[in-house]
Amino acid sequence: MKTEGVFSKSMLWVGLGFLYIPILSMVFFSFNNSRLVTVWDSANSPTLKWYGKLFGDRQILSAAWLSIQVAACTATGAVVLGTLAGLVLSRFGPFRGRAFLQGLTTAPLVMPEVITGLSMLLLFVSLEQLFTHWFGWQFDRGFATITIAHITFTMAYVTVVVQSRLASFDDSLEEAALDLGARPAKVFFRITVPLILPAILSGWLLAFTLSWDDLVVTQFVSGPGSNTLPMVIFSRVRLGVSPVVNALATIMVLVVALGVVLSAFLMRRQEQRRKREEQMAAAG
């Protein structure tokens, strides 16, 4: 038991180092003066030069703005569809086509992105042909097509999160409300939604992050002129390392770290409050 514990503990620390050293090195070298990212120019560093360059970079800023818009729309759409799918799968009992729906919702989780991207693009091309043929209406690929594609592969994640949350408690509260005469829609908004709110929120954040981060699917379904942030980063990184990208990465890491720590803190406080209330209820 003892040796085993030592081995797995040390592997844990090795693994954590493996996970964090690259990120920390990226942060570290964003303050480097030299254009050669990894050669530390100790005479003129640390410097905020690359941060200045980053905020003057029109291409990156407009791409980031587009990415934020896409990610926010995606997350909202994915939450609506994913919550409905999760509700249907865990609460509506057996109905015709249930297994098929379950398959459809979990398949995007593991589908290689190139396949999703290619198939979505071919769908949009076919729709384009159809629309121009029948209605004489042409649409451009861009914001809308990216968002639809992102919703499709992110809603699977929301569904899984919501479904597993719904599975963690039984439907007696909902049944009670129905018995008391509340209509199903009201039960959903008054009982179910508040209960699964944490799952919905984390689903939203998950969908936002996945959309914000996606490169492959976006490359397929975006049109000319609509470049998201990952596309811009990818095209720069391909040419080699760039200190501006390091600065951008540092900001993103910082935002995520703050967000995660904050949410962990809030969740912990809520947990404590709940425990206290339970204790008081038990005592009273």
């Binding site: 690259p22 990120i23 090195s25 990894t38 992050t209 981060d213 990208v245 951008l248 995520v256 995660v260």
Partner: peptide, 28 residues
């Protein structure tokens, strides 16, 4: 667990990019 999940929330592309800086000939 939070430490394991945290990198997952940061950009996948940038995490791969971080390795370019580590692995290249004049890298870290």
């Amino acid at each position: 667990l939070l430490l394991i999940i945290l990198p997952f929330w940061t950009s996948f592309l940038l995490r791969v990019y971080a390795w370019v800086g580590l692995l290249k000939t004049d890298g870290l």
